[in-house]
Amino acid sequence: MTYFEGFIAPVPEDNREVYRGHANEASSMFGDFGVQRHFEAWESDVPEGKVTDFRKAVDAKPEEKVVFAWFEYPDRAARDAANEKMMSDPRMEEMGKNMPFDAKRMIFGGFNAIVEEGSERGGYTDGFVVPVPEGKREAYRELAAKMAKVFREHGANRVVEAIADDVPHGEVTDFYRAVKAEDGETVVFSFIEWPDKQSRDEAWAKIMQDDTMKPEDPMPFSGQRMFWGGFEPILDNDLAKASASA
Rank of each mutant, 00 (worst) to 15 (best):
P74M: 01
E94L: 07
H22T: 06
Y124Q: 04
T125G: 06
V46F: 07
T186E: 02
F54R: 01
S190F: 08
D183L: 13
N98F: 15
V150M: 10
P74E: 05
E13G: 00
G123S: 11
M208Y: 04
V130F: 04
M87W: 01
N15K: 15
D89I: 04
W70M: 06
V66Y: 04
A41E: 04
G155F: 03
A181Y: 10
V159Y: 03
S199Y: 01
P195Y: 10
A181D: 02
M213A: 15
G34F: 06
S119F: 14
A26W: 00
F30R: 08
K97W: 09
A242I: 10
E43R: 05
E171C: 04
G155N: 08
G31D: 09
G31F: 01
A77Y: 10
R20G: 06
S88L: 05
E153I: 00
G135R: 02
E138A: 06
A69C: 09
E202N: 14
P10G: 00
A77V: 12
F7P: 02
Y19S: 05
D183C: 00
T212E: 15
S88D: 10
M147T: 12
P195D: 00
G122V: 03
R76Q: 14
Y140F: 13
L235H: 04
E232R: 13
I207S: 04
E202I: 08
P195R: 07
D89E: 06
Y124A: 12
S199F: 04
E185N: 03
M213F: 13
M29V: 15
